[in-house]
Design a protein around this nucleic acid. Structure first.
Lengths: 202, 202
DNA sequence: ATACTGACTGAGTGCTCAGTCAGTTTCTGG
DNA sequence: CCAGAAACTGACTGAGCACTCAGTCAGTAT
C-alpha cells in the first residue's frame, strides 16, 4: 500500500472518530509511520487532506449502494425501500467511519466556505436520499406505495434511518433495539391503506 | 449583568455556533470585554465553562417545555403530541443555540470521560423524549393513539422532529417546507386505524 | 486610619500546532 | 550505470493556545 493511501485511510479513521481539529498532522504521521512532511507533500494542507477524505467517503458510499442495487433487483417498491433501509443500517455497522464523518460538524462547517466540500456533501446526500426515493417511485408504479411526494417522503425515511444510526453512536441512549420499530414505521408511513385525506393546508 | 453571566452567555453562543475547540478563551474575553484571567477566576477551566454552559442549556430547555405543558393542558393525547412537535420546532427557531450545541459532537465526546456531562445529556434527552412519551401515554388512555410501546414511539417521533431541525441547520438541504410532512407522519405513525398486524418477529 | 477581601487584570509561560524546506533516498527511462 | 525526477524526511518556525500569577483596586469591617 502506498504511503498516500495509508495516510488517507488513517485520516479517514481519525477524522471520523476524533474529528478534524482534534486530529493533528503529527498524530497522522505517527499512525502511518511516515514523516510529517510526507502528508504535506501528497495533500498540500490539512484542509485539502480532509477534502480528499470526503471524496474517498463519497466514492465508497456510492459504490456500496450501487452494488446493493444491482444485487437485489426484484421485488416490489415497498420491499426495495425496506431493503434500502436495512442495507443502510448494515453498512453503518460495517463501515462506521463513513457515517461518523458525516455525523460530525466538520464537513458542514467547511462547506459554508468551500464550494468543493459543499458539492461533495450534496452528492453524498443525493445518493443516500436517492436510494429511498427510487424505491418509493417504483413502489408507486406497482401500487405498494401510496401516492405521496417521493422526495419529501424519502427525506423523512432517511431522517429516521439515519437518526437511528446517530442515536446508536451518541452513546447516550440504547438504540439497538429500535431496528424493528424503524422498519415498521417505514412501512406504515408509505402504506397505501393508511393514508388519510390530508387535513393540513399549508 | 455580572461578568460571570456575560461570559456564560457569550460562551453559549460561541460554543453553539463555532464549537468548543474552535472557540478560544481569548475570543471569549474579547467578546465580553473582560480580561482572560476573569474567565478562569469564575470557571476554573475551559472544560468547566463548557459544563456550566450545558447546565444552563438544560435549565432553559426544561423551563421552556415545562411552561409549554402548563399552558396547553386540554385536548387529546394526539393533539398534545402534535403541539409538542410544533413547540419543539418553534423553540428551535427562537433559541437555535440550545439545539445547535446539542447537535455538535463536543458534549457527546466529553460525556464519554466526564460523568457530570453524561448526566446533563441524559437529563436533557429524557426531558425532550419525555414530552412526546407523555403525550403518547395520554393518547392511549383517551383512544387517540394506538397501543404501541410509548418509549420507542416517542424516540421515533423525537428522531424525526429533531432530524428536521438538523436538516435545516446543516445548510445542505432546504428543509423548511418539510414541516407539514413531519406533522402528518407523526399522525400516521400513531394513528389507531393505520396499525397493521405485526409481521415482524424480532 | 488600618486591615482585609473578593473581583478582576494582563503580561508571561510552556506547549502544541500546521506548515516549510534543505537535504536524502528511491525510482525510472535511456 | 547514470542522471534526473519523484518520493520522502525531520528539524525547524512562528503563531496561537489554555492557563498562571503577582498585583491593582473598590468596597467593607474593625
Amino acid at each position: 500500500m502506498s504511503k498516500r493511501t495509508a495516510i488517507l485511510q488513517a485520516a479517514t479513521y481519525a477524522f471520523a472518530t476524533k474529528g478534524f481539529s482534534e486530529t493533528s498532522t503529527t498524530d497522522l504521521a505517527g499512525m502511518t509511520g511516515v514523516a510529517e512532511g510526507t502528508i504535506f507533500y501528497h495533500f498540500g494542507s490539512k484542509e485539502k487532506l480532509f477534502l480528499a477524505v470526503l471524496d474517498h467517503v463519497r466514492r465508497e458510499l456510492e459504490h456500496a449502494f450501487a452494488a446493493s442495487l444491482e444485487s437485489a433487483e426484484v421485488g416490489s417498491g415497498l420491499a426495495m425501500l425496506e431493503e434500502a433501509a436495512a442495507f443502510y443500517l448494515r453498512l453503518a455497522g460495517e463501515k462506521p467511519e463513513l457515517f461518523l464523518i458525516l455525523h460530525r460538524n466538520d464537513a458542514y462547517e467547511l462547506s459554508r466556505s468551500n464550494e468543493q466540500c459543499r458539492g461533495e456533501l450534496e452528492k453524498i446526500f443525493n445518493c443516500l436520499v436517492g436510494i429511498f426515493q427510487e424505491a418509493l417511485t417504483r413502489g408507486q408504479a406497482d401500487g405498494s406505495v401510496a401516492p405521496v411526494a417521493t422526495r419529501r417522503m424519502a427525506l423523512l425515511v432517511f431522517t429516521m434511518v439515519d437518526g437511528l444510526v446517530r442515536l446508536r453512536d451518541s452513546g447516550v441512549y440504547e438504540a439497538g433495539a429500535m431496528f424493528p420499530e424503524v422498519m415498521r414505521a417505514c412501512r406504515t408511513l408509505v402504506s397505501p391503506t393508511a393514508q388519510e385525506s390530508d387535513p393540513c393546508r399549508s
